[in-house]
Structures are given as structure tokens and as C-alpha cells.
Amino acid sequence: MEGYLSMLVNGLSYAMLLFLFTAGFTLQFGVLGVLNLAHGSFYMLGVFFSLTIAMFLGHLAGSFWIGLLIAPLFVALIGAFMERTLLRRIYGRDVLVQYLFTYTWIYILDDLVRMIWGARYSIVVMPDYFASAINVMGVNLSPYRLFIVVFGLVMGFLLWYFLQKTKMGMFVRAASDNRDMVSSLGVNTPALFTIVFAVGAWLAGIGGVLASPLQTAYAGMGIAIIVDCFIVVVIGGMGSIKGAFIAALLIGFLRSFGIAFFPELEMALKYILMAAVIILRPRGLFGKEEVH
């Protein structure tokens, strides 16, 4: 019983991290039509900004929350800047060109991180009230992981509300179907693209900040999560936020329960699931029929 509950919480918390991260990735792809391979680098930047804020403000009681608020905004600003100055030039170009282009960002950003923060490994210390286990029904659980679960669910709801109920969200959904038509209705699509890209980077940054007390920070850490993100997108369906949510849950549980029951297979399970989806349902669980 004890094992199951903490496995559940571990799986859920990783799922929520992965969901926030992937939601940003899939949102960007849906509207801009570009697969941003450097999305993991935005996550990494979220982690390092969180580190720096913790370093300077760590003595303050609310430093963690300040980091959660500010670090993703910085990541979003960097995303917006990169979209405006660089990415914008390759819309509509060959997919391979786009891959290569965003792929180079991974190395550039990794090296920038090495230059600024050095090659050492560090971790953000979480607030005391998150650090000590709490007892739920006789089981010790990590309050920080519980917090991630709740936070992820709230963010998921807000994202859903934004996309379904606000005019800006409707523009985003409409633009993911037909950019030209949205522009012809008077919507400043270049600005919309910048906003969407920044929001995507912001979500990656949030993922990074949330992960920063759980994971040591190092240049190059973006690669690991982008691989899981790809798996989630393939399983959930390209451009689908709902798909990202469901698939992130699957991957989260596969990881936490997989380690317990099939320790020697754990790494392979998610790839097996992905392969099965590619064979049985190539567009993913919630993907659109045609991809354009």
C-alpha cells in the first residue's frame, strides 16, 4: 500500500512536469508549425534562472515562489526574442532546415550556460515546509511532489480555459488551422506567433523551475526531457494539449510503476508504448487526421 501510493504520487508529479513542458512544445508546433528541438534548453534555462534566484534571494522566506514567478518570465522573454530575431526567418522552409536550425540552439544555449554558470553541478534547495515528508493514511509522501501535482492540474485547467474560453485562445486555435485566414480577419499574426512562442517557452521554464529542487542542474540537461517530450507528443498526437495530458500521465506512471515492477525494462517501456502507438494509430491518441 505504502509503495503504491508514493509510486502514484511520483508518477503523477513527473507526469505534470512533462505535461507542462510538452504543452508548450505542442502549442508552438500547432500554431507556428515549427518543431522546436531546443525546447529542452528553455527548460534548462528555467532551472538555471531558478538557481541564480535561489543564490541571491535564498535567505528570504519566499525565494522559491519568487523564482517560480520570475524565472519562467525571463525564459519567455528569451523565447520571444529568439522568435522575433531568428525563428521568424525560417517559417515555411523545409522541415529539415527547421530541425537543423533549432538543433543548433541546443548547443549554443548549452555553451552559454557553461560560460555563465560554469560546469559545476548544483541543485536548488526547496523550502523547509516542502522538504520533510508528510504522513497521509500512514504513508510518508513528499509534500513537494504533491505540490507539483496540484500546481500542474491548476496550470492545465488555466491552459484549457485560456484556449477554450478566451478570444486570444480562440485566435490560437484558429491559427493552428489556418494562419492566412486568421491574418485576413485582422489579427496581427506575427505578434500572435511571438506570444505563442513565448508562452511555450514560459511553460518550459515553469517545468524547469519545478524540477530544479529535484534534479541537479547541468548544461545539456535539456536533451533528456526533450526525448520524453517527443514520446508524449507521438503518443498523445501532434498539436493536441489533451493528448499531451493523457500521454504524460501514461509516461509518468510507466516510469514510477515500471521501476518497481519491471526494473530491468523500465527504460524500454515508454519506447515500446510509443512504437505500439506508431504502428496502431500513427496520428496518436488525439491527433488530427491530416497533418499539414
Partner: peptide, 8 residues
């Protein structure tokens, strides 16, 4: 001009 501008 861009389409959105012309539309406006």
C-alpha cells in the same frame, strides 16, 4: 501591407 493590416 500584411493581410491583417489591409483587413483593418
Amino acid at each position: 501591407l500584411q493581410p491583417f493590416h489591409i483587413n483593418r
